[in-house]
Structure formats: C-alpha cells, structure tokens
Amino acid sequence: MSEPVQPGRPQTTVETGSRMQRLFDLRYVIGALMGAYGIVLVIRGLLDGPEQLARAAGLSINLWTGIGLLVVAAIFLVWGLTRPLGIDVEENVD
C-alpha cells in the first residue's frame, strides 16, 4: 500500500499553493533585499578610505560583502525567473 496517499488530499501543488505564496514569491523578496544591500555596500566599499580599511584589519570588507550579497541576490532572482511558482508539480509522487 502506498501510504502517503491520503484521501481528500490533492496531489499536485498547482491549485493548492497557499494564499501566502500566491501573493508574492519569497525568492524575489530575498533577491531584492540582498541586491539592495549589495549595491549599497559595493558603492560604500569603493569609497572606503584608509580609515575604514584600518578598522577592518586592512580588508575591504564593505566591497567584498557587497559582492557576496550581489551573488546571493542574483542566485535567487535567476531561480525565481527560471522556475516560476506553480511549475513544481512532480513533488508528490510517492
């Protein structure tokens, strides 16, 4: 007996995505916030002078953190664009 097939439970996620999920895709929110932080830090990092560098043990930490955040943002935005919500239907195979 294939156990997780429960009576009355829809087996695809197309129609049943929560109202929460249909309102907005969290991946875009993460991408947007990380992207905004990344842009700000990269600009701030490019403007950093000796004072900021000395504080962070000689590391251009604003610039590097900014670049890292932009990479994270890009990953989430690309993921969101290439696999929009509702496509992910093969999950419930048991």
């Binding site: 830090l41 701030r44 900021q52 504080r55 962070a56 930490i61 604003n62």
Partner: peptide
C-alpha cells in the same frame, strides 16, 4: 563595534 566600518556595520 571595534572592527566593522560603516556599511557592514549597518548590516
């Protein structure tokens, strides 16, 4: 407080 410059400090 000791190590992070403005910017990363805010994060």
């Amino acid at each position: 407080g000791q190590l992070l410059p403005e910017g990363v400090l805010g994060i």
